[in-house]
Design a protein around this nucleic acid. Structure first.
Lengths: 202, 202, 202, 202
DNA sequence: ATATAAGCGAGACGGTACGTCACGTCTTTGT
DNA sequence: ACAAAGACGTGACGTACCGTCTCGCTTATAT
């Protein structure tokens, strides 16, 4: 298994971790998720397979850990309005989606459903964080009086995430249109939640 | 594709096609997408591997063809109002989603991005059909005077599909809540498009 | 060949080589040459197929390498007379022929003609060795004054080998008679070469 | 099974038999024994596979029947001397050997050992015929007084056949030298059997 | 300082599934 | 009942990766 820490002995070389990250990212970009093999990663990183499996239990965990690490980002933020907060969030998600190709996202998503442990990690390290951001954002809107009551954050999350996600990895549409879609989605959601159009700015 | 049709010779046995469909469906339900092997399908269907590869070029094409065939459905339908049409469509998508597990959907989605041919087929046999339904539905709304102008159907499609798919295959939330989410999504979309809440019925 | 040796890395396990040799020999004895499968060899040897294909490029090369290895034998030997040398050689060949069934010998022979590389190996590792033995034996006879001049070694080889080979794998005659045939062949050849009957002993 | 004759119905087309013979011969020449497939034969002959299997039980039987048919040749012949008879016979065998490549002969030989039925046919249609020729030839020599007693025909057969076959299919030596080897073999055998050199002619 | 523990690259190991191919049989349509 | 065409079940092939396990060596820490 991976990462039982260490007591004595030679410490892990951070050089290896760095090389692995770089190798995985470059190979994903070149060959895609499905065609990525551990052997290719090891070769490109100039590393033995054992060094990989000392860090990650499976290939999927390796990719996942490396890519999710890239996603970890700043704490929420209060823009002063529900619409501002929503737009900020959808824009951030749009940025995250743009980091990898649709093929990689889809592959990752598939593996998350295969491996229970991976699914748990995804839930805790990504979904739970996002959901709590949504919760906070909604709470602030309630506090401001923009909302009468707090809607189900999971539903709001789905309404936020869904269109962007569908645009990129289901419909395989123009990625360039994603930022615009992010704004549309935020506007739509604000309208729905508050029952009124957001301040006419965008 | 592996189907150059036939001229003379022994015709394909529909018995084989049927058995393959049943075998794939049952194995997907039992073992999931990732664990499905061609050999297991052949064995369960009582069929040789060659009969499979005579029909499908790859394992992915096999699964895809069989499952997409299941999705093909009735023509649109005019419910008399934009909201009715949207709700009808989201409900239909919700039903389709319920047919397979999230793991299967995610696996399928991943493979669509790997194999160009599969992607094309998906685009033509599923997405294009759905999109034209959306187009028709929007045109009717314009004709009725519900909408001043027709919005981009691709965006509307994403706004429709997205929350449902995200709920099921990204957030891995309760499938039982999908029908309710379908209605919420339709309502939200109607509000956004028309600038007013739908007739207060639901 | 599939043996680019090795530099670093885990060394080949001789246990695997041994198990493969034993498995091939026992399966050849039980099921014959034509019915031998790589999968069966792997299973019996308790070895993965990859370990086999790491050592041998094809099934044929595997069988061939293992069986030819068995044939490698002692250096020539000087019995003091041409007839003694010839008889010694034919007897040795008779022993080699007796090691495998006619079916195996015939299968091997057929594959040698199919695969160029196999043919080369056979030529170098078996035929060339035998031929040089024949050459030495003839040279000694010339030195002793038994022969006036050295006949073509290839022809002598054919005259030696041929009858035994024909008896066993063409005519499929009684293997028990092979030793006697070996002696007859040696006697005949001595007579022909020297123009006189060998010392009347056998 | 093959050739249960026929009662009523459409008669077999000899056109098919001819085409099969030609196809097998040309394919053996072009691609060799091991690479010959029934499908290729059918295609080249412009014939369905069923037509082949109506005539022959297996691929091996097909090849064998067609090639052995080619071998069937004139009855013995009395040249007036043992040496003449032997030389005639070895020369005839040399001619037969020249008809096919070593690869084909070796492949055939291997299959004869695999399939019992094929082995029986070979024994009866080729070996038994040859052996009876040898018997007759030896009987005539006894009658002429050239031999005091008749040696074992099987041994004589092996001594005749062996060197020629070994030259061609084991040693893979120059086929051009076969006629000369045929004469040498006959001479050697005559010397051995009669205890004296043949009339110094060749 | 020396032992111990864990790191390292390399690559062999047992497995498992892939997609291909040929076999010999069967099923259609035509003649 | 023959023919050509070609689909059928079977089963082996050789390939490719997986995740694990040596191998000989290096590098920190704990004695």
């Amino acid at each position: 298994m991976a990462r039982p820490a260490q007591a004595g002995g030679r410490p892990r070389e951070s050089r290896v971790d760095d090389a692995l990250g770089a190798a995985v990212r470059s190979l994903l970009a070149e060959t895609g998720y499905a065609a990525l093999t551990v052997e290719a990663v090891a070769a490109r990183a100039g590393v033995g397979k054992a060094a990989i499996y000392r860090r990650f239990a499976t290939k999927q965990e390796m990719i996942f850990s490396i890519l999710v690490h890239d996603l970890r980002e700043a704490p929420p933020e209060d823009t002063g309005s529900l619409h501002g907060d929503l737009e900020h969030l959808t824009t951030r998600i749009a940025h995250q989606l743009a980091q990898s190709s649709a093929e990689v996202m889809a592959g990752l998503l598939a593996d998350i459903h295969v491996d229970q442990g991976l699914g748990d990690t995804f839930e805790q390290q990504y979904l739970a964080v996002e959901r709590s951001i949504v919760e906070d954002l909604l709470d602030r809107a309630v506090d401001r009086g923009e909302l009468a009551q707090r809607p189900d954050p999971a539903v709001v999350h789905a309404l936020l995430l869904g269109p962007l996600f569908a645009w990129v990895i289901m419909l395989d549409e123009e990625p360039a249109a994603v930022p615009e879609l992010a704004r549309s989605t935020a506007r739509m959601l604000t309208t729905t939640l508050t029952g009124a159009a957001p301040d006419a700015r965008a």
